[in-house]
Structure formats: structure tokens, C-alpha cells
Design a binder for these strands. Structure first.
Lengths: 120, 120
DNA sequence: ATAAACCTTCAACAATGGTTGAAGGTCAAG
DNA sequence: CTTGACCTTCAACCATTGTTGAAGGTTTAT
């Protein structure tokens, strides 16, 4: 599979695939005789994993940490679980921060709507 | 008030104050004879407002939108309120996104903890 | 008078997550 | 054989939010 085909089936631009390779999220693929990258089918799901993880709010370096370097490897399940649980905590913290922020903004709105307040 | 003093009382580095000025969050202060920036007291609270707003999760460009350009101006109260209300919606959306993300991560953890699942 | 501590501008660097372009090689069809 | 669509590398650029450093001017204290 050439990079363009992989790009087409995954919806990830070739430039991004090369970027991921350069930054260690995608393994260096074998090359065809002409030097073109040659991807196995498995790389489709790896790219999907990356895409999903990004949608879940993981940064690329976080994803790198919990994806096995060698896609043939299977990472220790316990490690994956503990990574994900740490991420859960992280998400909870972010939600809590947003809620307190919401409360503050709301208070500001209430204050400003009071005709007795001095604006700003 | 010179930039160094303003930096000291607000805890915002001089480089950041100059950065904010360059990017339109802080007004261009009047200059002393020697060219040094000369800040009125009001700039302390303006910097605090910026700092707080950042802590509330506003990006610099968002803050720029709801701070009056000229600190002497009082922005239309209705405009400020509508800016803040838009921000509330934005926060609610972010919370909703995080919650759905949390749900997904949680499902993944549950799945991985099932000994019948194939890891990764 | 001189040194320390300030101030000025402008440019370069940092991390994050890419995109775009230049210069060139390869491949399939007409 | 030429054209278009691929592929290669490398470098430069984008936005965001700053920090750091160089080169030089000013102020303050000793």
C-alpha cells in the first residue's frame, strides 16, 4: 500500500502521515524498490487509533506513550489501562476546571445585568 | 509607573507585558521623555483582568475581543454581556465534549479489564 | 566616573501540530 | 514521448503564547 492509498482510506493527509512517522507515532515502513513507502493493512487501524485518540483529547506525545513502538508488539494491558485511567482523572480535572470557570463567568453576567452595578 | 514596577506588582514578566501590548491586549502606554513606557495605576487591574481571564480559559484573542481597546472607554454593557454569554455556551460545549470523551475512555477501560477481550 | 540595574528594539528560539512549496524521481496512459 | 499523477526529501511557513539574547541607551547609587 502506498502512502496515497493509505491517506485515501484513512482520510489522513499524506503530509500528516509523514509527520507522524517523523515524530515516532507511525513506524518507518519498508520501502518498495523505487523508494516509495509500502504499508501493510495494519497501518490503517493504527492510523485510526491515532485519530480516535486525538479525538479523545490525547496529545500526540501521550498517544506515542501508549502506542507500542513496534506495531507487532502488544503492550502490557495493565500499562494501557493505567494510562487510560490517568487520562480519566485528567479529564475529570478539566471538567471541574471548566465548571468553576462557568460559575465565574455566570456570576459576572449576573453582576453586569444588575442595573445597579457599575459596568466593567 | 515603569514597566518593571508594573511587572513586579502584577507578577507578569516585562516580556509578557510588551508581548500583550504588541498583540493589542494592552494599550500603547504614553512614553516618558527617555522613551520608557509610563503606566497609570489602571493598568494593574487591566493586567489582572487578562491574567484572570486566561485562568478562566479564554485565549488571548478572546480576551482581546471583550476588553475595551481604549481602557478609558467603557464598553457597551450589552456587548460585554453578549460576549460572556457566548462564552458560556462555549464552555458548555467544551464540558459536553469532555464528558463524551470521558465516556469513551471509560468504555475502553471497561473493555480492557474484561479478561475475554483481546488487548489493543 | 563607573557599575549595576533598568529601559529600548528587534530577531531568534521553544513546543505543538501540522501545511505548503521547491526540486526532483517514477509510473501509467495516450 | 510526453503529460499527469504519483512519490521522495528538505526547508520554510502558519498560529499560539510566550522567553531569551544581542546591541545599545538611561538612571541611580556609590
Amino acid at each position: 500500500m502506498k502512502i496515497g492509498e493509505l491517506a485515501k482510506v484513512t482520510g489522513v493527509a499524506t503530509s500528516r502521515i509523514r509527520f507522524y512517522e517523523k515524530h515516532g507515532l507511525m513506524p518507518h515502513p519498508v520501502r518498495q524498490e523505487n523508494g516509495y513507502r509500502d504499508y501493510p493493512e495494519a497501518m490503517i487501524s493504527r492510523l485510526h487509533t491515532i485519530t480516535m485518540s486525538k479525538a479523545l483529547g490525547f496529545s500526540l506525545s501521550e498517544i506515542k506513550r501508549f502506542l507500542p513502538d513496534d506495531p507487532g508488539d502488544i503492550m502490557e494491558r495493565a500499562d494501557v489501562i493505567s494510562n487510560l485511567e490517568a487520562k480519566l482523572q485528567d479529564i475529570d480535572q478539566r471538567i471541574a476546571d471548566l465548571k468553576s470557570m462557568r460559575k465565574n463567568v455566570k456570576e459576572m453576567v449576573v453582576y453586569l445585568k444588575d442595573p445597579n452595578s457599575k459596568a466593567c
